[in-house]
C-alpha cells in the first residue's frame, strides 16, 4: 500500500518534470513563431485597415477602404486574374509531367537512378540563377530560337513580346518545379508494395497505362492532392522570376499580385496599408482555392 503511494508520488513528480522540460524545449520555437510569424500576420491585418505611410509618418484609420481601392484598381484585378490563369496552366501541366517523370524514373535500373539525379538539379538551383540562364534560353540568340530555326521559324524575343513573355515564364517554371514534384511522386511510388504489382500482374494489369490507371493513380491519390496544393500555393506567389526577368513588363503583360505589392511598397514608397490589403486578398484567394480543392477531393477515397 505504502509502496504504491510513493510510486504514484514518484510518477507525479516525473510528469511534472517532464512537462517542465516539454515547455522548455518548445519555448524557443514558440517565441520565434509568435514574434516573427503571428505578430507580423496580425500587424499586417491591422496595417491593411489604415492609411499607413511609414516614411511620411501619416497614419490614420480608414477601415476597409484599402480593400475597396485595391479591388477596384484595374491593375491588381488584372494581376490576380493573370496569376490564376498562370496557376491553372502551370499546376496542371507540371502535375502530369511530374507523375510521368516519376513513373519513368522509378525503375530499378542504373540509368533511372542517374538520370533522375540530373533532372532534379533545377529544383535545387536558386530561382534567380535559373531565371538569368533562362533570359538567354528565351532570348533571340537563345536555345529555343536555335531549335525553332531548324523549322524555318523566325526568331522571337520571348520576354520582350506581350504575347510570349508570360507563356515563357510558365515554361520556365514548369521546367524547374516539375522535378521537385517528381521527387514527391517518387517517394509515393516507393511506398507501393511490390506484392500489389505482382498480384495485379497476375490479374492481367501489366501494361504501363493499365498500371497507371488501376494502381498508381488510385494509390497515389493523396500524393496528387499534396502536389496540387503545394503547386497552387507556390504558383500564386510567383515573384522572383518575374522580378528578375521582366519586372512585370512588357506593358504589364507579366504583372502578378506580388509584383503589385512589392512595387506599391518599395518603388512608389506610398501607402503600405494598400499593399497589406492586397497581400491579404492574395492570401484569401489562395486559401479559398485550397479549401475548394479539399472539398472537391473529399468525395474521392484516400488510400
Amino acid at each position: 500500500m505504502n509502496n504504491t503511494s510513493t510510486k504514484n508520488k514518484r510518477r507525479k513528480i516525473d510528469l511534472k518534470l517532464e512537462a517542465r522540460y516539454g515547455y522548455l524545449l518548445v519555448a524557443p520555437l514558440m517565441a520565434l513563431i509568435v514574434i516573427f510569424t503571428f505578430f507580423p500576420a496580425i500587424y499586417s491585418f491591422a496595417i491593411s485597415l489604415f492609411h499607413y505611410n511609414p516614411f511620411g509618418h501619416q497614419v490614420f484609420f480608414i477601415g476597409l477602404a484599402n480593400y475597396d481601392s485595391v479591388l477596384h484598381s484595374g491593375l491588381f484585378a488584372k494581376a490576380l486574374l493573370d496569376v490564376l490563369y498562370y496557376t491553372v496552366v502551370v499546376v496542371s501541366i507540371q502535375t502530369i509531367l511530374a507523375f510521368m517523370f516519376a513513373i519513368l524514373f522509378n525503375h530499378k535500373m542504373m540509368i533511372s537512378r542517374i538520370s533522375r539525379a540530373f533532372v532534379f538539379i533545377p529544383a535545387i538551383v536558386s530561382s534567380v540563377a535559373l531565371s538569368i540562364i533562362f533570359i538567354w534560353v528565351f532570348s533571340d540568340q537563345g536555345l529555343i530560337n536555335y531549335f525553332t530555326s531548324f523549322f524555318g521559324i523566325k526568331p522571337i524575343n520571348f520576354f520582350f513580346s506581350t504575347t510570349y513573355a508570360f507563356p515563357a515564364i510558365m515554361a520556365l517554371n514548369i521546367f524547374s518545379t516539375t522535378p521537385y514534384f517528381m521527387i514527391i511522386y517518387l517517394a509515393g511510388l516507393q511506398t507501393i508494395p511490390r506484392s500489389v504489382l505482382e498480384a495485379a500482374s497476375l490479374d492481367g494489369v501489366k501494361t504501363g497505362w493499365n498500371r497507371f490507371r488501376y494502381i498508381y493513380a488510385p494509390m497515389l491519390n493523396f500524393t496528387t492532392f499534396i502536389v496540387v496544393i503545394l503547386g497552387i500555393i507556390g504558383s500564386m506567389q510567383l515573384f522572383d522570376q518575374i522580378y528578375v526577368i521582366t519586372d512585370g513588363g512588357p506593358s504589364h503583360a507579366t504583372y502578378v499580385p506580388l509584383m503589385f505589392i512589392y512595387n506599391r511598397t518599395f518603388i512608389y514608397f506610398g501607402d503600405v496599408g494598400l499593399s497589406a490589403a492586397a497581400s491579404f486578398i492574395l492570401f484569401f484567394a489562395i486559401l479559398f482555392i485550397t479549401l475548394m480543392q479539399r472539398r472537391y477531393l473529399k468525395e474521392t477515397r484516400w488510400t
Binding site: P40, S44, I47, I261, T265, V272, F280, L282, F283
Partner: peptide
C-alpha cells in the same frame, strides 16, 4: 501562412 502575406508587416 504564405510568407508574402506577412512580408510587408515584417518589413515595417
Amino acid at each position: 501562412i504564405p510568407f508574402p502575406v506577412i512580408s510587408i508587416a515584417s518589413y515595417i
